[in-house]
Amino acid sequence: MKIRKLRKTTQILTMLAIFIIPMINLLEIYFIKGTFYSMDIGDLAISDPLAIFQILLSSKIFNITMLAAIFIPVLLMLLLGRVWCSFFCPYYTIVEFLAWIRKKLKLKSIKPKYKKGDPSRSNTIRFIFLISGLVLTGIAGIPILNLILTHGIISSQALILVKFGYLTFEIVFVILLLLIEFFLIDKFWCKFLCPSGTLLSLFKFKKGMRVKKQVSECSSCNMCITVCPMGLDPQTEGDNILCNNCGDCIDACPDNKKIKTLKFKI
């Protein structure tokens, strides 16, 4: 099975889940509760590590519940890389959907061409954004980055839409971002800013799942560079912390039909 098919399935299931979970809760079955800021499945707590880290900065408390809640995201990150972004994040799903619409409308591509220094530049930008956001969190004394976490906003707005039938003002921020994504730069939030993805990248383990070129020589069609959503060169930069293990390069590689050229490796 192609990786793309698996990825689309999990993405669609996640998008359905953010609407179905509140509906189940409306029936007073409180098995799964919460949004992508923080979620309980049964008694298993899962939280966004960034949200928890901000609480540590702003209120200077840390308890066992919070430690247990970041265990699964960090473990997933160590083993499988940044799959949260490419396989589950609802914002990434919507952005990919917008890109698909652009393709169907036959509009000109807004994806920037690959340049050698681009990945390290976007890494610098997103880490500066994350650190300045964390410093602001400390100064303001409230978890201020939670106001702009797109996946949390989308899931909580879905909850409110299901439960009360209206949306609150937070959705405006997401709509603005989506407009920029649609008309100006492709995937600019995920690539340059998203603080949650940036914090997750810190836990990228060298021996975790990563894209690797198996053979020394390939047909050099550079198809993988064209399709890479993060603007990387998968042949050499598979272990870059910007890579979100979406597997698009592996699906696109024409050489893979003959011999395994690009492959996920653990």
Partner: peptide, 14 residues
């Protein structure tokens, strides 16, 4: 409360 609330909306949900 403002320091600790991460706006996860769990209390709203239950």
């Amino acid at each position: 409360f403002m320091e600790r609330c991460i706006r996860c909306a769990r209390c709203i949900e239950v």
